[in-house]
Nucleic acid binder design. Structure first.
Lengths: 185, 185, 185, 185
DNA sequence: AATGAATGAGAATTCATTCAT
DNA sequence: AATGAATGAATTCTCATTCAT
């Protein structure tokens, strides 16, 4: 039930990851723990569902931006993706924090499931489509490095609110970073 | 006592973050919990101490590399720092994972203490010294973005061991990323 | 509804006593929990119904065997009853295990209801009918001891499958035990 | 700690098996749950410890009785063992009930550990020592059947307090049962 | 200073039972 | 009569922290 997922995000963002206990989520969702367990077999299932939702949102967004750009890799496209991603992250920073943290905790068997790896695969295929405009690069590594860079910077920006950096600056610099690296501009 | 810190790292890297309980650390260190609490008032104090030690190592390393390079910002310098950083991370990936994770959990009052922010400050001053060779940039943002990018990529690389990326590739791509962004090469 | 009782036995024997939850029984029976509660006011009511069914089967079987033997107490009769009982137990060992366990849990007020006590009463009346052929005994105690002995041995045999004992051996030894005790042969 | 084991028995006998929760045992023992878990890694460990203690008591008792009898198998010996066993059972009927119940729940891997099987082995070796006086029997089956019979009758007697049976009668009949079966008297 | 037994709040999870539809 | 989502008390187990020795 999406009420439970929404409650989980709310708890995550307002009270922190430690507060995301099954009881607290149930309480905030306005249901009993029992009900929560009817929908999610265990605590992790909630995070998995959240991950799937976010993964879909991010993927959809990237596809939309790329389609609007006509499939051409340009600084403009990178900037659009980064802007949209910032919106996605801002909607639930703590969720993305948890997703990132859990991604790094992933065990071999679950590896393919991790948010990280799924997104990197999507980015990799975008880079392949970008074609001639891009500098020649090891696609695996480039997709990996670009994703980690953007994700980490955005996340740390939202959670730490470092002095001297605001939304516009962050988008500018991340766009510059990615464009310089991938396109050479 | 550094025996306790070493034990903490050992537990962290061999048994995972969840296993780093105060009792387990004490056990591995060969002391009693009571003794551990004599040196570290609470669990977090251990992490703080670990953070300080890592911070010092990283800072020292960067200074050394920069001095050896004669204070000039060049791709070669970026690559050296990245290579050295990889060594530091590889020595205790799980420690750096925890440091990263905890850094993002930081509350306002402790903000200045976080590993992240301290390192960004150091990097910022390096960028200032780099002088004319560098593209003009918002220093705060540039230091921030560069640090987060390198740190996240390195950490994810060590913990996730993504397919298609090895040490050399990672160093190459991170160097390219940073150089293209800061120097334009 | 006997579909529910059959489901309960199936669950009991295939999945164990712990798995016999009301939901699981309902599921296996192909009805909803709600429906189950329409027929059985609470979980225990299912066990009571099961007990009644088993009690009737055992009683009927014993009567049939005794009638076929012409009402005379002989080793041959004891053996027949034991053989038939083994069949009954083998059809649903876990059920009989639960019945035995629950019988021992019985509270004062429900005492008369317990499978144990009901069966012992039936056996007692068989012994009375046996007449002159039997050694003189305290009938209450004899019925009690004989029943407990046969039941426990059979149950443990089916559930533990002890080394060195098979169907034939068990029937032989139990027959010898009972005959020696009651008839002196 | 034996205070915990004693508390477990007290709870078992006064409040029933269901009441034997870790918290309740800790409470009755006058310690915290945490302390309980320091001594017993999990709930079952308590039962295992109890089992070991009872096993040792029963074994010691049987050896003592047999030694006193000079190693000869006679009705008198059987009666003594039965009398002593009744004392042991009476001291904690609910404990023996649980031990019996758990014995039947035993899985393959733990089989050898079960109270039942351990005791049967001991009895088997007593029967071997009994020598010429005994009727020829399949030792495995005889030990098994005798143990189950005595145990079940005694337990049901203590827990159900069946009408028409008292201590003396029970001992008489069980002695008669065992003697008739094993010795032919 | 060192010890480590004791603490107990708190977390995840289960399941008999109810009741509105 | 049937349904099955919702309930929530109860249970097991963990671990940071304390304190008497």
């Amino acid at each position: 039930m999406s009420a439970i997922l929404d409650a989980a995000i709310r708890v995550l963002d307002r009270e922190g990851a430690d507060a995301m206990t099954t009881s607290r989520v149930a309480e905030v969702a306005g249901v009993s723990v029992g009900t929560l367990y009817q929908y999610f077999g265990n605590r992790d299932a909630i995070l998995h569902a959240l991950q799937d939702r976010e993964f879909e949102r991010a993927t959809t967004m990237m596809m939309r931006v790329l389609l609007e750009a006509g499939g051409v890799a340009e600084p403009r496209v990178a900037r659009s993706v980064i802007e949209e991603l910032l919106k996605l992250y801002r909607a639930a920073p703590a969720l993305h924090r948890v997703l990132a943290v859990e991604g790094l905790r992933v065990t071999d068997s679950e590896r393919v499931q991790a948010f990280d790896l799924r997104i990197v695969t999507v980015i990799r295929s975008f880079l392949m489509l970008g074609g001639a405009a891009l500098k020649p690069r090891n696609l695996d590594a480039a997709a990996f490095v670009v994703y980690q860079s953007v994700r980490a910077s955005m996340l740390a920006y939202l959670l730490e609110q470092p002095a001297g950096v605001d939304d516009a600056t962050l988008v500018d610099e991340l766009s510059a970073l990615v464009s310089a690296y991938l396109i050479g501009t």
